[in-house]
Design a protein around this nucleic acid. Structure first.
Length: 300
DNA sequence: AATACGTGGGA
DNA sequence: TTCCCAAGTAT
């Protein structure tokens, strides 16, 4: 017997302790997995679970979603946040029907070409839906590898090519085992090797962790804090979209004017929503969610 | 590379 | 109450 590898230890731990998330069950198909990955972009698991179930009940296939309007997707998205993801997912469904016969593609290159699918999501689908051997690197994996291997307290803010290489070197050769290891790395970062208060006492690789060995040094100096949410264009966009989401069809601009007093900022936020494909002007005085009603509004 | 992009819950 | 953030992507 040889020493268990890093991936082997984490995978063993995963098999015993993984959360029972619905998109990890055998009946989850590639479309269900793609939907989960997009919803999980910057949104916590607990809020995604019910939204994911409702979404797939309504749109079990890409073709089903492609047959609905972007407006319906935006409404079904609810308050998961970053609603542009709902529009991108709708565009994904259309592209999958048009370019791939309605089946989620299994090649990395084709996945990356889909709207809203980037480095992480493309690899996650290739690995978790199709069992391919690709490093799947999200913020959790970067933190785990950074600590356990490099001994540093935190990874950089974005995934770099070097992160993919470092993770790839940890993966087992067999594709199915590699996919399992990737899921295990993510789970470890999500529930044990957390950003704020890591639970090293229950970690399966505590004995070989470089960060632990060096006394768990704290991150370097203060990082620049981004602007507050209150008062930003983001908040105004959220307020505007809230009104449009609750409405049915076009909303007169007078009603939108009431959500925010600053004319300049409100107009800028609304223009941003239009640019992002979430909202469209109807005539000269109204706005609606994209596709929320007849393509050509009837005028008298 | 830095920034924009939502939301709600926990510490 | 304030702060931090949670399976990223696009520009």
């Amino acid at each position: 017997m040889t020493e268990p590898t890093f991936a082997g230890r984490v995978s063993r731990w995963y098999e015993q302790h993984a959360r029972d998330l619905p998109w990890r069950r055998p009946e989850a198909d590639p479309w269900a997995i793609l939907v989960s990955e997009v919803m999980l972009q910057q949104t916590p698991v607990a809020r995604v679970v019910p939204a994911w179930q409702a979404w797939l009940e309504r749109w079990p296939t890409p073709a089903a979603l492609a047959g609905s309007s972007p407006a319906e997707a935006i409404r079904m998205w609810g308050r998961l946040g970053y609603p542009r993801r709902a529009v991108r997912l709708h565009e994904c469904a259309v592209a999958i029907v048009e370019r791939h016969g309605g089946a989620v593609p299994d090649r990395l290159e084709q996945l990356l070409a889909l709207p809203g699918v980037g480095t992480y999501t493309a690899r996650a689908v290739a690995a978790f839906a199709y069992g391919q051997r690709h490093p799947v690197v999200d913020t959790n994996v970067r933190r785990v590898v950074c600590r356990a291997v490099a001994g540093e307290p935190d990874a950089g803010p974005t995934t770099r090519p070097a992160d993919l290489v470092a993770t790839e070197e940890l993966l087992p050769a067999e594709p199915a085992a590699a996919a399992l290891a990737s899921a295990a790395f993510m789970e470890l970062g999500a529930v044990v090797c957390t950003a704020r208060a890591p639970r090293c006492g229950v970690c399966p690789v505590e004995s070989t962790c470089a960060w632990r060995a060096s006394g768990r040094p704290a991150p370097a100096g203060p990082t620049r804090r981004p602007q507050r949410y209150a008062g930003t264009d983001r908040q105004v966009r959220g307020l505007l979209l809230g009104v449009l989401r609750e409405a049915s069809g076009p909303v007169p601009h007078q009603r939108l004017d009431q959500v925010w007093a600053d004319d300049v900022q409100r107009a800028r936020a609304l223009a941003g929503l239009v640019d992002d494909g979430l909202v469209e002007p109807i005539g000269a005085t109204s706005f609606r969610l994209v596709g929320d009603g007849p393509a050509v509004p009837v005028t008298g």
